[in-house]
Design a protein around this nucleic acid. Structure first.
Lengths: 157, 157
DNA sequence: GCCGGTATACTCGGATATATTATGTCCGAGTATATGTGG
DNA sequence: CCACATATACTCGGACATAATATATCCGAGTATACCGGC
């Protein structure tokens, strides 16, 4: 899985802990987490396209959460990066080779292999969808939230 | 996910349906499924290293299942290709940046983000481990098994 | 007819290219702010 | 002192390189078979 997913989740957490409407620049976030600024920006753009964040150009610009942390799931963030399609791609190799009629009734039903894989994929997605950014905020230690707010304060000073 | 996973599962199904101890060459398998022979071989080698298949060189050589279909899970096959580690890689970015003491007590506990991701990963693995090749044999239409056996017969003729 | 040695055709296995994707970098368009100027 | 035009510094956004990985291919080492000659 893309590294950007991890970065994005931590950035969303930080933006949620700030508890303010003023945007946070990618420069600040990249400094806080010691990440390559330009590439982090690329990842956050994906979240903007997915409607998870909103971006604001100009001085004092940056990124904000597009909606409350309770309404942002891990699945949302993962899908923003990896896309909505399953990790397992069925290419229907059961229909390949000579002497196979693609119109045969047996192919009306989905491939058994694909069905099994999709079942696992759905379980994975179900767990991701059950965890919101707000849940992570509650699970993380208070020190993490405090550190984020401290860092945010020291921006203006 | 690697394409080889799909190929491997279908090959294991074929080997199970054959119901014989004589090995099947990668040449035959690649013909049956219309796949690149050499690259399919590479994928099956991974299964051999994982102990799922056994390989037999020489004339009339090929691949066999190393154990009964009931004892081969989808997780076994996936792990043989993708490795045992989680798709999500935690790089502990919570500890990065200036003014963070890596020895702080808060870091004794696992990263909340990683924990959430791992929970989803475990659910995925649980579903994969619950499905054996034998289960797939039962779920697939009889026509698939029959076609495989027919193909195997026509090898010697 | 039977046995043993040998040639052979076929097998896997790993070393070697190519294509695709992920990662990383750079610079420009655009905007909110700060500043200076005139009223 | 206030309003306004302007300059400016800072923002994101996408176009452009590089590294890593997945995909594909080729050729060699090794083996079970088939063949052939000798007994």
């Amino acid at each position: 899985m893309s590294q950007s997913v991890e970065w994005s989740v931590h950035c969303c957490l930080a933006l949620a802990w700030i508890e303010t409407d003023q945007p946070v620049s990618v420069a600040a976030l990249s400094t806080w987490f010691d990440l390559p600024r330009a590439y982090l920006n690329k990842g956050l753009q994906a979240l903007v396209r997915a409607g998870i964040l909103t971006s604001h150009p100009g001085l004092r610009g940056g990124f904000r959460l597009a909606r409350p942390p309770e309404q942002i799931t891990l699945l949302d963030i993962v899908v923003a990066h990896e896309g909505r399609e399953d990790a397992f791609r069925c290419t229907e190799i059961r229909q390949r080779g000579s002497g196979v009629d693609p119109a045969a009734p047996e192919f009306r039903r989905a491939c058994a292999v694909t069905t099994a894989m999709r079942k696992a994929d759905l379980a994975w997605r179900r767990e991701l969808a059950a965890q919101t950014v707000a849940d992570l905020m509650a699970a993380a230690p208070q020190a993490a939230a405090a550190r984020t707010r401290r860092r945010h304060q020291s921006l203006r000073g």
